[in-house]
Write a protein that binds this DNA or RNA. Structure first.
Lengths: 353, 353
DNA sequence: CTTTTTTGCACAATCGATGGTGCAAATAAT
DNA sequence: ATTATTTGCACCATCGATTGTGCAAAAAAG
């Protein structure tokens, strides 16, 4: 009844046990047996044998033969961040609901690493690849293309494969406006008091910066280059930028647009070094939602990118035979301060509380 | 020079191109060619051909033959949480540094899902499995055992495989003590003002509860069962528990020990529903570190579990031929309020800022 | 009781890489 | 020049599943 630490049972083992050929066993166990006109009783015999011996197919062998693996990949820049980790969570649920096996890997926002990682995934014959936040989506595309793997960009668009991204321009406009509106009419925010920190020269940052500047100019009449402080996606660099600013100005800007929660962590590091008064009256807008970030001691307005819709759309597109190479924008959501949204974890049933 | 959307090159293609046999090509490309006494010039020829045609080995085929895959798995309860996402990040880095390919999957803290997921991983012939926070590590062990897969428990221990976990008892003592000490001597915390929320009947929760109660009794002289409110690992249940408490008592306990950052999110949800005064004077201790959580408007003391050391130890053990089935405790770290620690993201070099 | 049709299954090639074995040619030893 | 070694590589079975094809036996048709 149970395997005693031996090898796993194969169709050949079951073939011997059942007296049928291996191909019959295979057909029965992969569900194609009706098409192959296998007798019902034969199928039942084999199935019960399979169960007794805890047979499970060797997926490498199956994948080798069929040149498909049942694996669906998600390439992430990093795991350790609520935006991407919730994307991973949502991704897994959606892939599983399609009966496939999710594989999530990160590549540290390093183009080399991205390509190497994708090469590896391809070598395992993954069936589909979701490319999230890749620095160089088009090179990844080339690899997938050559291997005939369906793929799609998420979060950061490419020019050679369909992309599903958050509407960064609109999101930035909403966020910037919300920051500005947050200030009292008695003491309104002045243009030189509203800064953007974080991001780099990628599509998302550019769009957000554009949205930021447009609204700023619209509502505050003016916007100078000095108010844009790209720092990359590094908490440390962001902290340094804040420190430098504080060094120069003796205070922080009253209005802060922070490009991502990763950059926001740079602000935390700054905060740890300074007394609370230093930022008692600031208003922060962060492009990304983090539940804890939403409850900080100053108003934090956040943008929650709609990863569910993005992934749903991506799944839809990736199923299409020849999806158009275009960018699909998904509207993000403005999250007011002190808001605890539900997330992918909420769909998990927690037994035995 | 470049493949035009064709199939990927195989050793057979290179065999034809080079005039050598497939086995020679294979030996050259997998590095065993010296052992097989292949002429250096032959090797060079084949290598350059491989490069020209962008050959990469089909890892499914290799895995099938060698019954190893080069994959190392990490089974997580969930992704969307800083503790586990930073574990995933660290895991990836460590696996890569060992020249293997990391695969991270989550199983929603559902025993069925855990087993099914592991079955799948085994079917892909993963070489090693790190089982983090499994509800039923011993069943997972049985599967791995039968398949001859090296495995180890992290975060939640099992009885059949070596385990590396955080010292939950000590951590809880440190945390509880820090909460108590946080109160003024003028108005010290009373035993009936210190509650523990969250967790379920798992090893970690039990140890933490024990540590909590021991220190509480030691320092405050008394501890009642009513002060322990397990709610499972669900933000929603935790919120409900807080709401119920507030309903009954008209206020929150001044001292709160929260079992995990997931439960802490339940407190956030409560906070969103109530004015700030409701918890102006509370002190929270959370078993788990979240950088944003550390900067909330009330003192939040956190425990950072040392995922790097845990994983490093786990890697060490998993390499051993016959590791003892024992529990290895890793000391966690107390994190004072308003602390922004460095994390695995900091080791990522951010180019092109 | 034939002939035709259907049913039920076995055979064998295949996916791509690995590694044991064997053998000819080149080189060294006698 | 002959024998003994060494060098360099080809051959082939193998990993476990999939799938097109073919062929008996059983059932239906005549």
């Amino acid at each position: 009844m149970k395997q005693q630490g031996k090898k796993k049972a194969t169709i050949y083992d079951l073939s011997v046990l059942s007296g049928c050929s291996a191909s019959t066993v295979s057909a029965v166990l992969n569900g194609t047996w009706r098409k192959r006109r296998i007798k019902e009783s034969t199928a039942e015999l084999i199935q019960s044998l399979a169960e007794q011996h805890q047979y499970t197919a060797n997926l490498q062998a199956r994948g080798l033969r069929s040149s498909r693996s049942g694996l669906v990949g998600l390439l992430l820049p990093v795991h350790d961040n609520r935006y991407f980790s919730s994307m991973a969570q949502t991704f897994e649920a959606q892939v599983r609901s399609h009966g496939k096996c999710p594989v999530v890997v990160s590549a540290s926002r390093d183009p080399q690493e991205e390509l190497a990682t994708v090469e590896t995934l391809i070598s395992y014959s993954i069936d589909e690849l979701f490319i999230a936040g890749a620095t160089d989506p088009d090179s990844v595309h080339t690899l997938c293309e050559a291997a005939g793997i369906r793929h799609i960009n998420i979060d950061l668009p490419g020019t050679k494969a369909p992309s599903v991204i958050s509407d960064n321009y609109q999101g930035a406009r909403m966020l910037t406006q919300a920051i500005i509106k947050r200030f009292d009419d008695a003491d309104p925010l002045k243009p030189e008091e509203l800064f953007l920190f974080g991001g780099r020269n990628d599509h998302a940052s550019r769009e957000r910066i554009k949205g930021f500047r447009d609204i700023k100019t619209e509502l505050l009449g003016n916007d100078s280059d000095a108010c844009i402080q790209p720092t990359g996606y590094s908490p440390d660099m962001t902290q340094k930028a804040f420190e430098a600013f504080y060094e120069r100005e003796g205070k922080l800007p009253r209005g802060l647009f922070i490009n991502s929660s990763i950059n926001f962590e740079g602000l935390l590091r700054f905060m740890a070094q300074h007394p609370h008064e230093t930022f008692a009256d600031i208003v922060v807008g962060c492009y990304d939602y983090d539940p804890f970030g939403s409850f900080l001691p100053f108003p934090v307005i956040m943008i929650r990118q709609d990863t569910e819709s993005m992934l749903a759309k991506a799944f839809e597109l990736i199923e299409e035979t020849r999806p158009a190479v275009k960018i699909h924008l998904i509207q993000p959501e403005l999250v007011h301060p002190r808001t605890a949204l539900k997330g992918p974890l909420d769909s998990i049933r927690d037994i035995d509380a």
